[in-house]
Design a protein around this nucleic acid. Structure first.
Length: 669
DNA sequence: CTTCTCCCTGTTTTT
DNA sequence: CAGGGAGAAG
């Protein structure tokens, strides 16, 4: 017997009543963008090609949610740098007014930091925990390695950097260290047992002393959400809409956090571009973004392919570069921008000629009316720009350099910070160690014994003198030095002090030590410290200053010239990694030479593919003009001067896509 | 145990 | 080319 058929009527979703909204979304966005922006709830993945209005889409989505009545505080915008978050929230503010400022935004790490300081109690965290940066992490590992007697044998135990890398990589990929060693550090197989023991000791060392490294921030937050139902509930109730930018550069633990945060409401939008995944050294995998629909079953997937940034010539090059990747999931970029300017592959005699070419072209651009702020020079590695920096300085071209060297990681800044960190967290043994070793007559052995003696003391500085005596310190000068240190720490611990004043006080103590330790270049270091003093003026609490220094250290080093000519803007010198998400009228990519880009460290096929994506990112930063240059003579440590060849990603390209040019000295008259 | 000196290595990218 | 590590002297 046949069932009777009941016909369900097709339900037509009522078109949203656009008159409710002040912003004319349909006029400001293309169809794909509009779909993403007006997406109300549930998981959605937006694959956004370079320059396709990714940021714009995120900003308008936030505005749309707010206009739809979602409280700004219920929106969480996770970005790759806090700079990116601030910029986006500023633009949201322009659209919807002050309420935009209530949107929660930042990096995964800064978000974790905030939550853990406020609600970390249930998993045994004090709010004053110290964040270890990579250098601190290596210091601790080194300490433990020495303690375990692993360094001093005839067998060469791996160095702290390698150990830190393996331990951190395992945690970023959210897998057991054992498995990570087997997969990616096969050459360390013979030390497997010792490394596992060391990692366990490293972990307990941190837990006992209120120390969290970068990976801990993410893992402890995941732990908190998983094991503490009230917090889980509160977070889910608070952050009801989650958006993640640059999703292609998230790693396993970050994906896990996204899953946990969005588990109840599933209102999560991820935005990214697999072709721009350039952070595998941090455990990111470009395949993660394709797995998003697995993480959130039934996720809507959307592509933005129209490019609004670059001339077609630049897109042709970028498309060609990425088309040669063996594995790719997406799209060909296209634009409607008119103009037939092509990128240019520029050959120069040597590195210095390259620098002179770049400097000269920058000056010409300025003559043509291009602002310096609309010009960038990009490179694979920070040191590639050294020669250019000198040339720009010589010609009084103001610039800022982003990426690479961070002044926060220099020894003198870390020394000064150590004094402040023990004030914030007296059980921070890493900082005690660093600080005590600066004192006369104290090496790592005595410092460690003193730290043990002081452990648990309510006011460690008062126990300092006795601890020094117990550690066998006799010399009058050394005893006096410890007394001064104790007095300093005692004074710093006073209530309600301004960080800047505390820092000034540390400087009184540290100044002479600095001069003695670096007799040849202490003036430069003193200038760094003055700069640091200026930064400290911005903070009202020591804790927030220390957290910021670890989570987003001041990254720009401003060329000396800038001070004299800030009003005309400045050229940006940046690593490609730090140029992510940015764009300029004219972009130079220097050292586009095989052996530099890709660099000598890229050997495996996976690494080469990442370098390829890096080239893709670099070239898509340009709107109108793109110059890729390389020197014909380049110095190689092993082989002396060798003939430079263009980067393999550019070499096979048709001259129609990438015309070439040779830089020549002007003929003498 | 600390400090000084010499030698050697090894050199991306970043939260 | 500099910073770290190892080895020797104080």
């Amino acid at each position: 017997m046949a069932d009777r058929i009941i016909q369900l009527k097709k339900t037509v979703e009522a078109a949203p009543d656009e008159s409710r909204y002040r912003i004319k979304y349909a006029e400001l966005l293309n169809a794909a963008q509009l779909t993403a922006v007006t997406h109300r709830g549930g998981p959605i993945l937006v694959i956004a090609g370079a320059g396709s209005g990714k940021t714009r889409t995120l900003i308008y989505r936030v505005a749309r949610l707010i206009e739809s009545g979602v409280p700004p505080g219920a929106i969480l915008l996770l970005t790759f740098t806090r700079r990116a978050a601030q910029e986006m929230l500023r633009r949201v503010g322009q659209l919807v007014g002050d309420r935009g400022g209530e949107v929660a935004g930042g990096t995964f790490h800064s978000f974790a930091n905030t939550i853990l300081r406020g609600h970390g109690g249930p998993i045994g965290l004090q709010p004053n925990f110290t964040i270890l940066d990579r250098g601190d992490m290596e210091d601790v590992i080194n300490l433990i390695r020495t303690r375990m007697g692993l360094g001093s044998k005839e067998r060469r135990f791996p160095k702290k950097g390698t150990l830190a890398e393996a331990i951190s990589m395992a945690r970023n990929k959210n897998r057991a260290l054992d498995a990570e060693l087997e997969a990616d550090f096969a050459h360390l197989a013979e030390y497997r047992a010792e490394i596992l023991a060391l990692a366990a000791n490293y972990d307990s060392y941190k837990r006992e002393r209120g120390l969290l490294d970068y990976d801990d921030l993410l893992h402890r937050l995941a732990e908190l959400i998983k094991h503490h139902a009230p917090t889980r509930q509160r977070l889910a109730d608070t952050f009801r809409y989650i958006m993640i930018d640059e999703y292609q550069d998230t790693n396993a633990i970050q994906a896990e956090l996204v899953r946990l945060l969005a588990a109840t409401h599933r209102n999560v939008m991820a935005v990214g571009d697999d072709a721009q995944s350039i952070y595998s050294f941090r455990g990111a995998n470009f395949r993660n973004i394709m797995d998003f629909p697995k993480l959130f079953e039934g996720a809507k997937v959307l592509k933005l392919e129209e490019n609004y940034r670059s001339l077609q010539g630049i897109l042709d090059l970028a498309n060609e570069v990425i088309a040669r990747a063996p594995e790719k999931y997406t799209k060909a970029l296209f634009t409607r921008r008119a103009g037939d300017l092509r990128p240019l592959l520029v050959r120069t005699a040597d590195e210095h000629t390259q620098s002179r070419f770049v400097a000269q072209r920058i000056l010409e651009l300025r003559e043509e009316g291009v602002e310096l702020g609309e010009i960038a020079v990009l490179f694979r590695s920070s040191f590639h720009a050294f020669d250019l920096e000198l040339e720009l300085q010589r010609r009084d071209i103001p610039f800022v350099k982003r990426g690479g060297f961070k002044f926060i990681e220099t020894a003198h800044i870390k020394d000064v910070l150590a004094h402040l960190r023990v004030v914030a967290n007296p059980s921070d043994a890493v900082s005690w160690l660093r600080m005590l070793m600066l004192a006369k007559g104290v090496g790592h052995r005595r410092a460690e014994r003193m730290i043990e003696e002081m452990a648990g003391a309510a006011a460690p500085e008062r126990a300092l003198g006795a601890a020094a005596a117990k550690a066998g310190m006799r010399a009058a000068a050394a005893v006096e030095g410890c007394a001064r240190l104790a007095a300093l720490i005692g004074a710093l611990r006073g209530e309600g002090r301004r960080p800047a004043d505390q820092l000034a006080e540390v400087m009184d103590y540290y100044g002479p030590i600095l001069r003695e330790a670096y007799p040849d270049d202490y003036p430069k270091r003193e200038r760094d410290l003055e700069h640091f003093q200026n930064i400290a003026e911005r903070y009202r609490s020591l804790e927030s200053m220390l957290a910021d220094m670890a989570l987003e250290p001041p990254n720009d080093s401003i060329g000396d010239v800038l001070a004299t000519a800030p009003e005309e803007g400045y050229v940006t010198l940046s690593t490609i990694h730090s140029a992510k998400g940015l764009e300029w009228h004219a972009v130079f990519v220097i050292w586009a030479a095989d052996g530099r880009f890709p660099g000598p460290m890229s050997v495996g096929a996976e690494e080469i593919e990442e370098e390829r994506r890096l080239m893709y990112v670099a070239s898509t930063r340009a709107r109108d003009e793109l110059y890729l240059s390389y020197p014909i003579y380049m110095f190689d440590r092993a082989m002396g001067y060798v003939m430079g060849r263009p980067s393999r990603f550019l070499e096979e390209l048709d001259a129609a896509v990438l015309p070439t040019a040779l830089v020549q000295e002007e003929e003498p008259d």
